[in-house]
Amino acid sequence: MNDVPVSIRDTDPLPTVTATIDGADVTVAAGTTILQACGGRDGEIPTLCYGDTITPKNACRLCVVEVEGSRALAPACSRPVEADMVVRTRSERVDHARRMVLEFLGSSVDLSLTANVTAWNAQYGVDLDRYGADAATVARPVKVDNDLYVRDYSKCILCYQCVDACGEQWQHSFVIEIAGRGFDAHVSTEHDVTLPDSACVYCGNCIQVCPTGALVPAVEFDMRAAGTWDEDRQVVTETICGFCGVGCGLELHVQDNTIVKVTSPPDNPITHGNLCIKGRFGFQHAQNRPG
């Protein structure tokens, strides 16, 4: 995180715990989650609702693992490793639960922009056909109510990350919340008013944490619609925002010498992946080009 010199850090070694994960002894700092102990998002345990900058809600349950002595499966993303815990990250039971989570989501939500899903579907033997053509889905019209971003809740898996980013974990705007209950639960402003009628300040921090493309910048949405969005041709360069004196880290996504998207590095100690409207959307002045 911050480059705090060692001299002012608490130098006492952190307590550790040792557990058995997939047959191997693993020693980690107390408080480490099973997911972190297994390599985080780069490890073998699949995750959907887990993000780098938001306290896990463990809502999707894709990362479940077996913890010996536990009646139900445990979410690896939020269960801390405990001493002498015996964990299995793959088993018939685990795989079954993951398959069903992928089937539940795949049969009700548009996952076309969600990373890794195709590979996981193959890995876990997902069969979406068995739910029939009449299976209920969350499909609903795309919300285009402002010039900066588009909300397509047909792609929403209710990971809660946008709500938490807008709310108490980062932005504290509290403009969107989960409304309704059960299968009707959905992300909403009050009374489903448009974003311009809400208190939204267009920081776009909800967009950055959205793992399924339900929230995308209007530029990306339009380019996708036009068939010109091509991540293979995009180069990402880190720099510093030119507005105000805070010095927020930016990632400029550039395609054909044009900025097509701005994000902030999730591990940036100043932003934690967050920006304001100017930093995220105010890049146009650098590319109002002649001709």
């Binding site: 809600k57 463990n58 809502a59 999707c60 349950r61 894709l62 639960a97 069903m100 989570v101 539940f104 989501l105 049969s107 009700s108 739910y131 299976a135 209920a136 898996i157 209710l158 989960i178 309704g180 209950r181 059960g182 299968f183 009707d184 639960a185």
Partner: peptide
Amino acid sequence: RDESCGQCVPCRVGTVR
């Protein structure tokens, strides 16, 4: 299905399925 809070996928979608 009515009473599921909707938080986790297995219950939210499972009760509907």
